[in-house]
Design a protein around this nucleic acid. Structure first.
Lengths: 202, 202
DNA sequence: GTCTATAGGTTGATAGAC
DNA sequence: GTCTATCAACCTATAGAC
């Protein structure tokens, strides 16, 4: 059933780390096999191609992640506040136990072109729909278009701190401490929720 | 026969378009010379390397952009509101006349690792400092760390809509119209300003 | 399943004719 | 300044020995 070889997992681990750190295009299969300490041909044996490997790397993480998001949204009840909604969306990523997935997810969110078809339409449609519905109840005064835009503002703010998390400390002279994940979620939730509560105006 | 600057400008134009659309790693010099309808060797003649070309592409756009940002910040007076500050930061990019720079800037902001040294420390330090100072006056109740985090939330929200602008229409079934740039700025400013005004709390 | 070896293609960069 | 031709290095992917 779940017969996963040691080699296969090593490749996935090395790949997600390097993809997150250097990007998908800039990471070669040789980089991955060197990091994983396996043979080059093992990649094409276990996965068929680099493209399929990318899919496998993403899929391994994004499914439990989205399950967790939906579970947290359910736990918030039938009428969650906007704070609870944003928290359910962000916390599973920002506070993820497995640190390599943080830069990986930031990378995916930041380079939509290659992944919008293979990732978003496949794994994120249900999530987006459920969260959009919840937001429609939590901030009913906003027009659907405005809610959609703000949803993307939220996703962007989150993606940015994911992508930059390992640089923010150095870049801000130690002012931003990216190690306390729960604190980041808390700051993000406050900021985004206030943004969602802003009157739409014209 | 053609003036000697025409080739160079053609290369820069083609490069910024392709870099923005496909990313820096995924764009080859052959892609660029084909698009610019110039010879392959012209790239290495006018610019020394692909790396230097990337620098030139970025530098050509980022300097007038940052000048415009600082000018708008000055125009807002000695004590600008947070709305004015956010507008001065975002409008010059989001409403840029030259459309190729929109995805280009989104790409730069989304892939910090390769550019944090060559771009941010070189061109963005002064901008970040001036805007941080203005924010300290506009929202003085926030701790410096909180202001810094919210600055990055703002940058992320902006970068995201820049990167996704050409996809948002299709992805949202036409709900999000990315063609009206001023409307995007307006939405972004309202959202971010409300986020900045949120009490810090603990 | 794991390896070596290599095919077959693309890349960035250069040399040298004109 | 512009071109053709080419290099060495790298890439993904595969074939075949063990």
């Amino acid at each position: 059933m779940i017969e996963r070889s040691e080699t296969k997992v090593s490749i996935l681990n090395a790949a997600e780390m390097l993809f997150g750190r250097k990007g998908f295009d800039a990471t070669s299969l040789r980089d991955i096999t060197a990091e994983a300490q396996v043979n080059l041909a093992a990649v094409n044996y276990h996965f068929q191609s680099k493209d399929s490997l990318i899919d496998a790397v993403i899929q391994r993480r994004i499914e439990p992640l989205n399950d967790r998001r939906l579970a947290m949204l359910d736990e918030a009840g039938a009428h969650p506040t906007i704070e609870q909604i944003v928290h359910a969306f962000a916390a599973p990523v920002v506070e993820a136990d497995l640190s390599p997935i943080v830069p990986l997810m930031g990378r995916i969110l930041s380079t939509p072109d290659q992944f919008v078809s293979r990732v978003f339409k496949k794994h994120l449609n249900i999530v987006a729909q459920r969260f959009t519905e919840a937001m429609a109840k939590a901030v009913p005064d906003l027009s659907p278009a405005e809610r959609m835009w703000r949803f993307h503002f939220m996703a962007g703010a989150m993606a940015h701190v994911l992508s930059w998390s390992h640089l923010l400390g150095e870049l801000t002279g130690g002012v931003c401490d990216a190690s306390d994940r729960k604190a980041i979620t808390s700051r993000l939730v406050k900021f985004v929720a206030a943004g969602f509560r802003a009157p739409e105006g014209n």
